[in-house]
Amino acid sequence: MRKLILFLYLTIPLYVAGQPFRLAAPQISVDSVFFLNQAKISLGFDLDSAFILYTINGGYPDSRSPMYEKSLTIRESAVIRAKANHPDYLPGPFVEQELLQVRYRPDSTWLRTTPDSLYAGKGNATLFDLQKGGQDVKSGAWLGFRADTVVAEVFFKKKVKCKTLVVSTLLDVNAWIFPPAGIEVLGASGNDPWFYIGVWTARTDIDLRGSTSDYTQFRKMHLFPMEVDRIQVRVRPFGPLPAWHSGSGQPAWLFIDEIAFQ
């Protein structure tokens, strides 16, 4: 009953008021998108009488969701979704942010493919530094590649059994930056030969025309659960830009800011 009353309280004014404006999405800030032990999430929506409802369990925020009061600390991978509410306005769209816990950090790394000199970041360390890149591709957090398959090898002193691999990539169709066409992961132990432990191939039926830029494209793949002390990750670029693109036929760019082992 209380929920019904709350619902009526929130909705009746909107039907009677002449111009029910919609709220915008709240602001999400996190101290680290990739984290080892814990991450802190802060939400912001500085409007009198507004409140934020959120979820971190994969659901979508509604009237049953908790109300945000202070910053949250998470200790495992999560997706936070948040939505602003206010008695005088229609609720806004939800905003979401995925945070990924990194289980294993390599003891040494080798990037066999050289990034473009304009987007070389800090070299191979860029891919394993737990730093998420933003919209600025020249910030140093991203490595940019043109045409070549990106091959990275990592080494662990102690054997690991990774369940999931995440390759964080960028999509910006207008800037010629396309998602990878596929990812192959090989593992090995000691002097054993390489063994395929994971393969991911991009769907080819998705039309990227008009897609909005997105710097949080996480390519996740489950790995065959075997103990290894070295892993090779091969990320294949998109290839020639499609016929509808202004750069049709030219090779697409591939941008990666992190490779994470879970």
Binding site: L8, L10, F21
Partner: peptide, 17 residues
């Protein structure tokens, strides 16, 4: 809940925010 509902109804007749 009635007073809350009443307040909500009254609030409903106010002008644009």
């Amino acid at each position: 809940g009635v007073p809350v509902l009443g307040a909500g109804m009254l609030a409903g007749f106010k002008r644009d925010p």
